[in-house]
């Protein structure tokens, strides 16, 4: 066991990453934050629209898109990867729709069938063409955030901003801008599709656009956190935010804060335990969620416990009047 869990050395775990290896640490933390923020912003809407598991499906099924893009272009270029992932995302959405509409299979099963099939195709492609595709199976699952900063990019203040980092930053900015611009449309179509229709918002355009943005975010997060941990990045920030506030702008702000905190804390956890950095970030994110779940001032478990029993000694005010004696 001591081999497994090293002793907690404060200096080693908390101070050293920032004092001795800031150039290595900073890009990782920044990347974790950017992924968390982009995913969290999109994920908030997924949660609102009760589509969290469609996010799950798409995050799995971008894999064959990426693999095919690799095989066709033989490169790791940004554009082919994006196109491949977008195509895969749309194919997934369509497949789910078709299975659900054309047969009596319900939506949950349709999601399960669609994404497992596509993911399986992706894994098979990768293992068949292992020499051609620069991805291994484990990287697919939990990413390689540690290697993100290694490639040469722009150096600013002694810190190397690798191309991946710059790409992720632009994706995050674009996502934030899109949400800002189309906030009204997203909000209305998420809450009340009928109302959206009546004010001239095409709900299915919004739906498919959101799926495209989701695919883009997932594919850019893919390298650093892999296909499955992305789901955590999508859901945890928004879920934590909505435990603490009921107003959407505040929820999104909290989601971004959650992304930043879990990124920093995750790095330290990974330094201590010497394990996967991306997974550690998710574990710390989950820890933050649990914290909010227990201590939230409005809906936390403790709060719930304090106010558990409703006061039922007095009848509610809107009770209709009735003669008790009329009761048989």
């Amino acid at each position: 066991m001591t081999q497994l869990i090293p002793a907690f050395d404060f200096h080693q775990v908390i101070v050293a990453p920032w004092s001795q290896d800031a150039a290595g640490t900073f890009p990782i933390v920044l990347m974790g934050f950017l992924v968390g923020a982009a995913c969290g912003l999109v994920g908030t809407f997924l949660i609102l629209r009760r589509m969290a598991l469609v996010g799950d499906a798409i995050s799995h099924s971008v894999l064959p898109g990426i693999a095919i893009a690799f095989l066709l272009t033989n490169s790791r270029g940004t554009l082919p990867m994006f196109i491949g992932a977008l195509a895969a995302g749309i194919v997934t959405t369509l497949l789910i729709e078709i299975i659900h509409r054309k047969t009596r299979v319900k939506q949950d099963a349709a999601i399960g069938i669609a994404f497992t099939s596509l993911f399986a195709v992706g894994v098979i492609l990768i293992s068949l063409y292992a020499s051609k595709i620069d991805l291994d199976q484990e990287c697919v699952l939990y990413g390689e955030i540690g290697f993100i900063g290694l490639e040469e990019g722009i150096t600013l203040g002694g810190i190397n901003f690798s191309p991946q980092l710059i790409r992720m930053a632009s994706v995050t900015l674009v996502v934030a801008a899109l949400i800002l611009i189309f906030y009204k449309e997203l909000l209305v179509s998420s809450f009340d599709p009928a109302l959206a229709f009546s004010v001239g918002i095409n709900a299915s355009v919004v739906h498919y656009s959101l799926m495209c943005v989701l695919s883009a975010v997932v594919v850019s997060a893919f390298e650093s956190v892999g296909a499955i941990l992305v789901i955590a990045m999508l859901i945890l920030p928004g879920a934590t935010g909505s435990l603490l506030s009921q107003r959407l702008p505040r929820v999104m702000g909290l989601a971004v804060l959650h992304a930043a905190m879990s990124s920093v804390m995750g790095l330290h956890l990974a330094t201590w335990l010497d394990c996967s950095i991306a997974a550690s970030m998710v574990v710390m994110g989950a820890f933050l969620f649990a914290f909010a779940w227990i201590f939230s001032p409005s809906q936390g478990i403790i709060q719930r416990f304090i106010r558990s029993k409703p006061k039922l000694d007095e009848p509610p005010a809107d009770l209709p009047a009735a003669e008790k004696s009329a009761v048989g």
């Binding site: 009848p315 209709p320 009047a321 009735a322 009329a326 009761v327």
Partner: peptide, 23 residues
């Protein structure tokens, strides 16, 4: 019924304007 029992009895006695109004 409306959250509480407004009236319970034979249909011909219970089915009247006042009690329906109350319900």
């Amino acid at each position: 019924l409306n959250m509480r029992v407004v009236a319970f009895g034979e249909t011909k006695t219970v089915f009247n304007y006042d009690l329906l109004q109350a319900t």
